[in-house]
Design a protein around this nucleic acid. Structure first.
Length: 103
DNA sequence: AGTAAGGCGGGCA
DNA sequence: GTGCCCGCCTTAC
């Protein structure tokens, strides 16, 4: 078993509960974790992403509707999102508010 | 123990 | 709509 830190486990545990075709924001994850201002930390946890497909990190975007970043490359992230039905235009989520999943 | 970096957020000009 | 600043939390070396 890989020993991971608490915050990481918290964030990673929230990712898989996001329905496909929807997205969430780092701020939301941080908020669900108990620290609404830990968006950065949330991103860090997701970035480590010890579990891969189980933790759809690509489903996590920025609060302003941008795709944000991705360990493998933002370009890939957009690709994966498009496959799930999330249209991304020029690095920004289309219908962001409509597909935004809130905890 | 302290420092540096990170896939951010929000506010203001 | 864009650009700039600061602030927040955590992890890793």
């Amino acid at each position: 078993m890989k020993k991971i830190t608490g915050f990481e486990q918290r964030i990673l545990g929230l990712l898989p509960m996001i329905p496909a075709g929807k997205v969430t924001t780092y701020a939301e994850l941080a908020r669900a974790a108990g620290h609404p201002k830990a968006a950065r930390a949330a991103g860090n946890a997701v970035n480590k992403n010890p579990h891969a497909p189980k933790v759809p990190c690509h489903r996590v975007v920025k609060s302003n509707g941008e795709v944000g970043g991705y360990a493998e490359g933002t370009d890939k992230k957009v690709k994966y999102l498009a496959k799930e039905g999330v249209m991304v235009k020029n690095g920004r989520i289309e219908n962001f508010k409509e597909i935004l999943y809130k905890f």
